[in-house]
Design a binder for these strands. Structure first.
Length: 329
DNA sequence: ACCGCGTAGTCACTAGAAAA
DNA sequence: TTTTCTAGTGACTACGCGGT
């Protein structure tokens, strides 16, 4: 499972990993970064253990297309290794952490864009007769993501037993904490799900398969399928994708759900002191702070709405000149 | 030949826990 | 409270396979 290391640091890195793991940390991603550290040390023909300032600066140098945050994460691992080496008698330079600020702004679809995406997805499904195509469930998956705001991973791992189309509730089982949460959904989504289930259950190949989202031949698709179709449909819908990491992502259905829900609650003049905790629970956030980020996002996208709400209940929406918008999950 | 999927891998990003 | 750190997962691609 673990990769070999080639430089003079190899043994120390292995010990370091063992120590960290014995403390209960997984150190999976870190092992990858340590591998890069090892490669650089090997290339430089480092002959003795102890990180010099020169070695540290080469390892911590910014990669051409790397974000500040990623570099920050990378350097943290090297720092930990440097601390460990110091503790074990190999004097090492401890690199400084850079400053960084979050820059990603989530994409929020307009209602027109959402409708356009749905209709293109429906057309694509009608045109695709491949027996193994994920297109079979894409239209209903997109509707599910938009109308419940659940994560893509959560949707893809749903089983048919988690869906109750009589009471319009679905169950998210969170294997991580053994927690589960119930998500009520709308009548229109329920109809879409029932339609899908009808076709799904008619197919003999799918008998006995528990996964909700399967291709017509009965196989279970990974979430990369959903993403690939998403990009195709996005292109056909004429919504431009801004390139790697920047464009609308599948995950942005979740943001869109949150923002549209907030807007709709504002329009119905619901008291946000009550409705925010509800939204927070629905999204599965552990704190209100995460949900608060959507409030800022909503304020940014619908300034005129905010003006009218603030007349009734001031202080709900932040002054955007003074705050920055960060992404919430 | 072409298309779409599955898989595995790299790189990137964020939430939330832990430490200070 | 703020800073530091880890866990977890998303975004994206290459490649190979099998069905049409």
């Amino acid at each position: 499972m673990s990769k070999p290391f080639y430089s003079v640091y190899g043994r120390s890195i292995k010990e370091f990993l063992t120590v960290k793991r014995s403390l209960g940390f997984k150190y999976q991603a870190a092992e990858y970064e340590l591998g890069n550290f090892d490669k650089i040390a090997y290339k430089r023909e480092e002959s003795s253990i102890g990180i010099t300032k020169e070695l540290a600066s080469e390892v911590c140098a910014r990669h051409p297309h790397e974000s500040e945050k990623s570099r920050y994460n990378r350097i943290q691992v090297v720092r930990q290794l440097a601390f460990y080496l110091n503790d074990t008698g190999h004097a090492s330079y401890i690199p400084k952490l850079p400053l960084f600020k979050s820059s990603y702004t989530p994409y929020v679809f307009t209602k027109e864009e959402v409708l356009k995406i749905f209709s293109i997805a429906d057309q694509s499904k009608a045109n695709n007769c491949n027996l193994r195509t994920g297109m079979f469930f894409i239209p209903v998956l997109f509707r599910l993501l938009y109308s419940t705001g659940i994560r893509t991973g959560e949707a893809m791992s749903l089983s048919i037993n988690d869906i109750d189309v009589t009471h319009n509730v679905l169950k998210i089982r969170d294997s991580k904490n053994g927690k589960e949460r119930l998500i009520p959904f709308s009548k229109s989504l329920s109809e879409a799900l029932q339609d899908y289930l009808k076709y799904r259950n008619q197919r003999p190949a799918i008998k006995g398969v528990n996964h909700l989202f399967v291709h017509p031949a009965g196989g279970v698709n990974g979430s990369s399928i959903a993403y690939r179709w998403f990009r195709k449909i996005l292109f056909s819908s004429g919504i431009s994708h801004q390139g790697k990491g920047a464009g609308p992502r599948l995950h942005d259905f979740r943001h869109t759900f949150a923002v549209h829900s907030l807007v709709s609650m504002c329009e119905q003049e619901l008291d946000l002191y009550y409705s925010l905790p509800i939204l927070s629970t629905y999204l599965g956030h552990q704190s209100l702070a995460a949900t608060d980020k959507y409030v800022r996002l909503t304020a940014e996208m619908y300034p005129s709405l905010i003006k009218s709400v603030n007349k009734i209940c001031p202080h709900i929406f932040p002054d955007l000149n003074k705050t920055q918008c960060y992404e919430a999950d």
